[in-house]
Structure formats: C-alpha cells, structure tokens
Amino acid sequence: MASYWRGAGIVLLAAACYAAGAITAGVKHWFQPLVYVSIENDSGEDLAKLVLTHESASLTSTVTLPALKRGQSTELIFFVAGEGGYQIEALFPDGRMAKSGAGYVESGSSIKEVIGKPKTVTDADH
C-alpha cells in the first residue's frame, strides 16, 4: 500500500511541475511567434506618415502607425511564422522618406528603430 501512495505522489508531483511550467510559459509568452518593434522619432521633426510592412512565409502585411511627433515613440508586436522580415517607411512633411528594417527577424526578436534625419538606425536583438 505504501508503494501505491508513493507512486501516486510522484504522479501528482510530476503533474504539478508540468502545470507550473505551462503557466510560466504562458505568462512569459515563451514559444510564441511574436516580434517586438519599438520605433522612436529622433529626427527633430514631426513625421507625416509611418508605415511598417512585415512578411513571413507567404504572408505580407502593412500597418500604418500613428505619425510620430518629434521625440515620441511607439511599439508594435506582430506575428511571424518562423522567420521573416520587415521594413519601416517614415515620411516627413516635406516629402523626404527614411526607410529601414532589420531585414531578418524570427520569433522572439526585439528591435529598436530610431528614426533620424533622414536615416534610420537599427538595433536588432535576435
């Protein structure tokens, strides 16, 4: 009888450990196919338009973001199926355009884009 309770205890402990791991993975968003992009306007000028185009597998999507005022920043989280890429186009009121993009992103990538005059610097953490 003691071995029965010992076996039941081991099974319950294993189930509790599994549940704790699953809850932790869900709370921390582990294994989710998401990319995090932070965009900061450090150009000294307001932007007229801000567009992010991303692609993965056979999907391409374009997102028009709020035009950032000077010094403002915004964040975008998007789905990527395995590997993909993105490009940002920042349009200034006088028609100049700054383009950038890390080119390659994968699940869990965290990128900070800083829009300057008229170039953009990419800091990618894969």
Rank of each mutant, 00 (worst) to 15 (best):
E106Q: 15
P66E: 12
K69A: 14
S61A: 15
L65C: 03
L68K: 03
S107D: 09
Y36T: 09
Y18M: 14
L59V: 13
G82C: 03
L76K: 02
E45H: 15
M97H: 09
E113Q: 11
D46I: 10
L50G: 00
S100C: 09
A16I: 03
T62S: 11
G85E: 08
G26C: 04
G108M: 05
A81H: 11
P93E: 13
E113D: 13
D46W: 12
A67I: 11
Q32A: 05
R96Q: 06
P93N: 08
S109T: 06
E106G: 13
M97Q: 14
R96W: 02
G85H: 03
S110A: 14
G101T: 00
L76A: 02
S73M: 02
G21F: 01
G82W: 04
Y86I: 08
H54R: 00
S58N: 10
L91K: 09
Q72P: 02
A22N: 06
G44W: 04
G85T: 04
Q32S: 07
G82Q: 05
G95R: 04
Q32M: 08
E113N: 15
G103I: 06
S110Y: 15
G84P: 00
A16G: 08
L47P: 02
Y36S: 05
P93S: 09
C17E: 12
A25W: 01
S61Q: 13
V51C: 00
Y86F: 07
V63S: 10
Y104G: 13
V37T: 01
G26P: 04
